[in-house]
Design a protein around this nucleic acid. Structure first.
Length: 300
DNA sequence: AACCCGTGGTG
DNA sequence: TCACCAAGGGT
């Protein structure tokens, strides 16, 4: 298969079928791109769209978020899930102010050093916000490349160096075209080459797809461990945080006690929230979102 | 490396 | 219906 052909076909398909997502518009800056990427970590696009817009209205630049409390970040995060990301995003804003003068850095190494920014997000920002030529490999890209190029059923549990190498080989030399190609492959994985029921009939690379040619083998075992939720600490954390999020300021522990009957598990969940920087004890028997409280009166 | 971390839509 | 899972990161 020709790498050039693959990239060209996918880009042509993208030009016609790409979703009109707000963070793909021309004048969207690096900070807005970064916020979108963090929100999209394990949260579906449809739920991110409105949250992203509201977030940027309130905090148009990293310094704006850095100056506000973790509590407000957690509230604004709403119900996107994994609220640790809200705290890390604020930590990230603080780091951008302290290390980079309030501007989102453009070097991969600097991006990777930011809180909540890993292999995928760093590359996504470098490519989509700054037009650099880096392979951007998320679960969609991994699946597409694994299938189309290697002809294998599916990718491994996490991004590996080999995935970056395989994807890099598909990218055109010109940086802007490479970034566009990455976005296009990602979109193809999201809309056509999906995990569960791929729509090969509408796929632009069906004729050169190694997986299609080999009969679309199905993964041998379960791709990953099933996510369980009901009855777990995660559910209890979610319930506790829900109460704290709706309250203003400290909440007496008695009110938190009502969300879950098992004392041991509830305590463990609360400790976890404190450990993660989401919640803090106040006055011995109450708890609040970190930094939450009445506004500081402005002195005359 | 394996496991933990939320939430809500859906086939 | 309910198991599955969606632009990952941290430890």
């Amino acid at each position: 298969m020709s790498e050039h052909t693959f990239a060209t076909l996918v880009r042509q398909w993208y030009a016609e079928h790409a979703r009109d997502l707000p963070w793909r518009k021309p004048d969207v800056g690096p900070w807005a791109i970064l916020v979108s990427e963090v929100m999209l970590q394990q949260t579906p696009v449809a739920r991110v769209v409105p949250a992203w817009a509201a977030w940027l209205v309130r905090w148009p630049e990293p310094a704006d978020l850095a100056a506000d409390t973790p509590a407000e970040a957690i509230r604004m995060w709403g119900r996107l899930g994994y609220p640790r990301r809200a705290v890390r995003l604020r930590d990230c804003a603080v780091a951008i102010v302290e290390r980079h003068g309030g501007r989102v850095p453009d070097r991969l190494e600097q991006l990777l050093a930011l809180p909540g920014v890993g292999t995928y997000t760093a590359r996504a920002v470098a490519a989509f916000a700054y037009g650099q030529r880096h392979p951007v490999v998320d679960t969609n890209v991994r699946r597409v490349v694994c299938r189309a190029v290697a002809g294998e059923p599916d990718a491994g549990p996490a991004t590996r160096p080999a995935d970056l190498v395989a994807t890099e080989a598909l990218l055109p030399v010109e940086p802007a075209a490479a970034a566009l190609t990455s976005a296009a492959i990602m979109e193809l994985g999201a809309l056509v080459c999906t995990a569960r029921s791929p729509r090969c009939g509408t796929c632009p690379v069906e004729s050169i797809c190694a997986w299609r040619a080999s009969g679309q083998a199905v993964p041998a075992g379960p791709t990953r461990r099933p996510q369980r939720y009901a009855g777990t600490d995660r559910q209890v954390r979610g319930l506790l945080l829900g109460v704290l999020r709706e309250a203003t300021g400290p909440v007496p522990h008695q009110r938190l006690d009502q969300v879950w009957a098992d004392d041991v598990q509830r305590s463990r969940a609360l400790s976890g929230l404190i450990q993660d920087g989401l919640v803090e004890p106040v006055g011995g028997s109450s708890f609040r979102l970190v930094g939450d409280g009445p506004p500081v009166p402005v002195l005359p």
